[in-house]
């Protein structure tokens, strides 16, 4: 056999390699401990993973429902605008109606102007002092 050409170490000879006493017994215990730690870590990371999954789900549902949300927002905005326009126009009509009503039924104070009213109105843009100053100067 080929291995007989190498007489240095017999086949299966493991004597050159040693290991600590009770190594395999200790190895089992060490492995059990490591496995426990890893399992605990896995459980805690699973909890974190669950939270992350929920967040992802929420994000996903937000993304899928985004067009609907936009449409709803637009609808609300539209309703608000319509109501605003309607309010404004109703204000305008009511004020114009009030104005026309005032024109049609003028009050007693405006219908019969006094001499004083006439004088004040005739001054126009002039100030009342300027009027007196001017009239005195002309004299």
């Amino acid at each position: 056999m080929e291995r007989n050409k190498m007489p240095f170490i017999e086949p299966g000879d493991r004597t050159v390699f040693k290991m600590p006493k009770n190594y395999f017994k200790d190895f089992e215990a060490t492995l059990e401990e490591r496995l426990d730690t890893l399992e605990k870590e896995k459980v805690s990371s699973n909890g974190l993973l669950q939270v992350q999954t929920e967040a992802k789900k929420f994000k996903f549902s937000m993304e899928t429902h985004r067009p609907i949300l936009y449409m709803a927002a637009m609808f609300v905005l539209l309703l608000f605008s319509i109501s605003l326009i309607l309010n404004l126009s109703s204000d305008k009509t009511s004020s114009s109606l009030r104005l026309s009503a005032e024109i049609q039924t003028p009050s007693a104070a405006t219908s019969v102007p006094t001499a004083e009213d006439y004088l004040i109105n005739s001054i126009g843009t002039y100030g009342i002092t300027e009027y007196y100053v001017e009239s005195e100067y002309l004299k």
Binding site: R14, F17, K18, M19, P20, F24, F27, E28, L31, E32, L35
Partner: peptide
């Protein structure tokens, strides 16, 4: 089952690995 597995196979696997990496 895993404990049984470790007990049964750790030694033979150790020697295969040891011959490859040399250091204990």
């Amino acid at each position: 089952a895993f404990s049984i597995l470790v007990k049964q196979y750790s030694e033979s696997l150790y020697w295969q690995i040891r011959k490859m990496v040399l250091c204990h």
